[in-house]
Amino acid sequence: MEFLRPATWDEALAAKAEYPTALPIAGGTDVMVEMNFDVHRPSAILDLNRITELTQWSNDGGVVRLGASVPYARIIDELSGPLPGLALAAHTVGSPQIRNRGGVGGNLGAASPAGDSHPALLAAGRDVFVEAASVRGTRLIPIDDFYVGVKRNSLAADELIRAVHIPVADGPQQFSKIGTRNAMVIAVCAFGFALHPKDGTVGTGIGSAAPTPRRAVEAEEYLRGVLAERGLWESGDLLGTEVIQRFGELVKAAASPIDDVRGTADYRRHALAVMARRTLTWTWNDYSKQIRSAA
């Protein structure tokens, strides 16, 4: 095994091109567990810690470009305003020590269906892009095309994640996750939700309840329709239990969970419906408050 320590981004891309089977390591919170328990023995390890731009973010007012290795702790501290859903999700990841090391780049790299960033990124809308780069150039992968299978993503062998582009929130966002203990749990299932008043859409993301993270498309469409037809974006009026209930049902229907040691498929469906109803209620309450105080 080799240990590659590129000092710059270009060196990293060159190394990845030369050793396509090298395993990138950022915070190491996934990689090292696999090393310690002999799950993985890559030909080389490619350390990304020395590349400072990966730990930086920028915000042009409309979009946050989040460096792949910005640790969760900093997302919580520095980005709760523009990225409230992701910050809430970040706050549920592992423990303070894990949040000091792990980041969204690693979460995307691992592409676990239980990764907590994913539901928040999906909910943030269809204009979320993973910025992937290689010596061949840079491309922006729409988040909806990124997850391709259980722990599989659409990166090519020579590509590395440079950053994630996430629109700045234009409405309330929420994230909920089920675990069987009150800290340090991998999600039994999780749900991210965002209101996007600017374009009159809503975003959803389901975690740990399908082979990949996924969107509850019908639920989004249903709610978008109701909000538009009833002029609720403008009025901020109550949604009513029927709408909330139906939304929960559609989220539940979008999942295809399995039974495993962490929970049953039935429970996951049930809990998704509950979380969908609650997160919708919380965000909508916040939104109507904003509308009323603006009025």
């Binding site: 320590r5 190491g28 090292m32 567990v33 328990f37 020590q97 894990i98 090391r101 340090m184």
Partner: peptide, 29 residues
């Protein structure tokens, strides 16, 4: 545990507490 779950291995790395079991040795150069 050597899987980040227990915190018994917590050390400061450049002033930030982390699980040392999850830091690759080469990363502390």
């Amino acid at each position: 545990c050597e899987q980040g779950e227990c915190g018994s291995c917590t050390v400061y790395l450049d002033g930030v507490p982390v699980c040392s079991c999850l830091v690759a040795a080469g990363q502390v150069q």
